[in-house]
């Protein structure tokens, strides 16, 4: 029972009880002497611990923090928002893939199909021209994306090495 009371008193002091529950605690204080003793002891410990736990920094602490922020060129927190440069390579890759696919309209996919389906004379694959077309576009897109991502990383690496 003592353990349950202890938890209840703790919750009372933490401000987590509803008004009804707080009234019940206060009623227990008035009607149950052992609960009341525990409640008062807790309050004394609570205050004492609060006094004992408070510490103070030395004089000039705030100035020290602000000086470090100002003189050591700590990075300014950046405002929230979309970082456009992060998504630029992706946009360029997609635009590039679309441009290349438009330029590839004259590619004869039937001829490619024949060559793919009979690599060494005997046919083992049966790819349709449409499948080949999508494979072709997919490979181009991935190729563009990989190239631009590589360029972006290369540029970023050069930028950070200059700092």
């Amino acid at each position: 029972m003592r353990n349950k009371y202890d938890l209840l008193i703790q919750e009372y002091h933490s401000g987590n009880l509803t008004d009804q529950e707080k009234l019940e605690v206060e009623l227990l204080c008035n009607t149950n002497p052992s609960f009341n003793t525990l409640f008062e002891a807790y309050s004394i410990v609570d205050k004492k611990l609060n006094q004992e736990l408070k510490e103070q920094v030395s004089h000039g602490f705030t100035e020290g923090v602000m000086n470090q922020i100002a003189t050591q060129a700590v990075n300014q927190p950046t405002p929230k928002g979309i970082n456009k440069s992060k998504y630029l390579p992706f946009l360029i890759a997609i635009a590039g893939a679309i441009a290349i696919s438009i330029l590839s309209t004259n590619v004869d996919f039937s001829r490619i199909q024949t060559q793919l389906n009979n690599p060494f004379g005997a046919g083992s694959l049966t790819l349709q021209p449409d499948n080949i077309k999508w494979l072709y576009y997919g490979a181009l897109t991935i190729g563009c994306f990989t190239f631009l991502l590589f360029m972006d990383r290369l540029i970023m690496r050069n930028k950070t090495s200059l700092n």
Binding site: L53, E55, Q56, V57, F61, T62, V65, M66, I69, A70
Partner: peptide, 19 residues
């Protein structure tokens, strides 16, 4: 960009943080 206003937050919470 108003860097100096951060000192108000530092002043307010420095002692508890230190504790």
């Amino acid at each position: 960009g108003e860097q100096q206003k951060y000192s108000i937050l530092v002043d307010r919470y420095k002692d508890y943080s230190f504790s």
